[in-house]
Simulated assay, not measured.
Amino acid sequence: MNLPKVVADLVETQNSFDSVAYANCFSETAVVFDEGKTHNGRKEIEHWIADSNERYKATIKPVGFEEKENESLLKAETSGNFAGSPFILTYHLVIINDLIQSLKFTG
């Protein structure tokens, strides 16, 4: 599967639990929507993913990728320390200038 570099980096940094490198996949003004909460900016995203890594130890395995007009969709098998693991999550990504501007998850 041919993923844009920033998406491949996101997968790699998630699977190595590197919250700093993960956050660096995002723009300074990026927004992440997860579990009913909004995380604004690279620093908040770094804190959010560090906490998430601590709690869930989630790893992701891409199973599909599609680029649409305004967003990219990454489908990934997500495994970790949570009920229902593993399951397929869809990552709704808006990528601008090779950085993620927004990320929202759907199941």
Rank of each mutant, 00 (worst) to 15 (best):
V7H: 01
K61W: 01
E77N: 12
E54F: 10
I95N: 00
K75S: 15
A8G: 10
I100K: 00
F87T: 14
L89P: 04
G41K: 06
V63R: 09
Y56G: 04
V94D: 04
L103A: 03
S27I: 00
G64H: 11
F17R: 06
V63K: 13
N2H: 13
V11K: 05
K43N: 09
E77A: 11
K104S: 15
F17E: 01
M1I: 14
E77T: 13
H47W: 01
A8F: 05
E66K: 15
F65I: 12
G107V: 13
K61T: 13
E67M: 05
G64P: 06
P86L: 09
V11R: 05
I60A: 08
I96M: 08
V6F: 00
G36M: 05
S72D: 12
H92V: 13
N81Q: 13
H39Q: 08
K104Q: 15
A30E: 05
A83R: 15
L99D: 00
Y22K: 05
D34L: 10
T29Q: 12
K37Q: 14
N2R: 14
P86F: 09
E46M: 07
L99Q: 09
A76N: 08
S52K: 11
L10N: 01
S102N: 10
D9N: 12
L74F: 08
N53T: 03
A23K: 00
K5L: 09
L10G: 02
I49N: 03
G80Q: 04
V20L: 07
V94I: 12
E28G: 08
F26I: 02
A83H: 15
A58P: 03
Y56K: 08
F33K: 12
A30W: 02
I45K: 02
D9H: 03
T78W: 04
T13D: 01
N81V: 09
D18C: 02
K43R: 09
I45Q: 03
F87Y: 15
W48M: 10
D51H: 11
Y56V: 03
L74T: 06
K37M: 12
S27M: 01
N81K: 14
K75W: 13
I88F: 10
E46F: 01
F33L: 14
F33E: 13
S102T: 14
F26W: 02
E35A: 15
S85G: 11
I95M: 02
V20M: 04
N24I: 00
L3V: 06
K43H: 07
L103E: 07
F105Q: 04
V7L: 04
V94Y: 00
Q101E: 13
T78C: 12
T13F: 08
I100R: 00
F82I: 06
S19D: 07
C25I: 01
H92L: 12
F17M: 04
R42F: 01
S79C: 09
L99H: 05
M1A: 15
D51C: 07
G84E: 10
A58Q: 10
K104F: 09
N70C: 04
V32K: 04
R55P: 06
H47D: 08
I96V: 15
I100W: 00
L93K: 04
G84A: 11
Y56C: 06
V7S: 04
E44R: 09
F105P: 07
N53Y: 07
V7M: 04
E44F: 05
L10A: 02
A21R: 10
L73Y: 03
V32S: 03
L73H: 08
N81G: 05
N53I: 01
L89E: 14
T29H: 10
E28I: 02
V63I: 15
L10H: 06
E54L: 13
S19H: 08
